[in-house]
């Protein structure tokens, strides 16, 4: 990851863009110096950022508009919570969370990728809400809407934040590298013209399904991080509005290039927290921000920043 950053930083034309990315990383790390609440919020932003990056890959590069990501986020959270309650070591619990999310993605993906466009949106939404209902109803396991407390778990907030940011940056770097591989290029081609690629004999279904599994696993990992971070899990995390919030983060920052998702998550988390402290009409503010973004920065705010400050042409 760092290698990618510095390579791009050295690469002349991309130099200023590299600087901008370092700036973003700096913003993510800055709260370490402040501690307390800013750090808490920044960890939340980094973890949601990981989920947003996964969605950004799925949406912006795979052309799969999923409105059911909250299910993977919540499943990851509950898996780690229940595994810890069952006495499993933390490392194993953190391994199980993405696996559980990927398993769910496999089960639902087989149906999801029989459809296209808006229907994918609705089908993922439907599966997401079914998982939400299950978490809500299965009180014996999940505690229902009373939620699940992870008492007695203490991870140092600085450590947790460093790990969260590290995983986030590794994910961005790794996934951006993935996009350069033949696999990534094929995904891109499928997004642009699936019929054509299929006619060339490429099993597009499996390309999309594998991408779905990968992003689900990452989202599950993000969810497990959120569970450790908040020491509390509630079915609300699985509600479809959580999926919508992730989508807002991605589109706000820009759905392509993955850095936009990181920026979007950071911006949304801090701005929403800040605004909602002094007005209950924060929805009005967030809504206006969305409309203005689309009107004045169609590709999202991050590409706009890259054009204005970075001097580059933005991420294609």
């Amino acid at each position: 990851m760092m290698a990618e950053l510095s390579r791009e930083a050295r690469a002349g034309s991309n130099g200023r863009q590299g600087l901008l990315r370092w700036g973003l990383v700096g913003l993510l790390l800055l709260p370490l110096a402040l501690g307390g609440y800013p750090l808490y919020l920044a960890t939340e932003a980094a973890l949601l950022g990981l989920a947003a990056v996964a969605l950004s890959l799925l949406l912006g590069h795979g052309g799969v508009p999923s409105l059911g990501q909250a299910a993977f986020l919540g499943l990851g959270a509950y898996t780690v919570g229940l595994a810890l309650k069952a006495g499993l070591p933390l490392g194993l619990a953190l391994l199980l969370a993405p696996l559980a999310a990927a398993l769910l993605a496999l089960l639902t993906g087989l149906l999801v990728f029989r459809t296209h466009g808006i229907f994918i949106l609705m089908l993922t939404l439907a599966f997401g809400q079914m998982v939400y209902s299950a978490a809500h109803k299965w009180t014996g396991l999940t505690g229902g809407d009373d939620g699940l407390s992870l008492s007695g778990l203490s991870i140092h907030p600085v450590l947790l934040h460093l790990v969260a940011v590290g995983v986030l940056l590794a994910a961005v770097g790794g996934l951006r590298a993935l996009l350069q591989t033949p696999y990534g290029k094929t995904l891109e081609a499928i997004r642009q013209n699936e019929e054509k690629i299929r006619s060339l004999g490429v099993p597009t279904f499996y390309y999309k399904l594998s991408l779905y599994l990968l992003t689900a696993a990452l989202t599950g990992l993000a969810g497990s991080g959120l569970a450790l971070h908040r020491s509390f899990i509630s079915p609300h995390d699985l509600f479809w509005l959580t999926s919508a919030t992730l989508m807002v983060m991605v589109l706000l920052g820009g759905s392509r290039g993955l850095w936009g998702a990181v920026f979007g998550a950071l911006l949304y988390t801090f701005v929403q927290a800040w605004v909602s402290s002094f007005t209950d009409l924060w929805g009005l503010f967030v809504g206006s921000l969305l409309v203005l973004t689309v009107l004045f920065a169609r590709e999202g705010l991050w590409p706009l920043l890259e054009r204005r400050l970075g001097g580059g042409r933005g991420n294609a």
Binding site: Y37, S234, A273, S276
Partner: peptide, 21 residues
């Protein structure tokens, strides 16, 4: 005053803000 937003995760966050900030 802080808005709980009918979401326990937000309540956790707001309580931390009130206490730490």
């Amino acid at each position: 005053k802080e808005d709980e937003e009918a979401d326990p995760a937000v309540a956790v966050r707001k309580v931390r803000k009130l206490v730490e900030q």
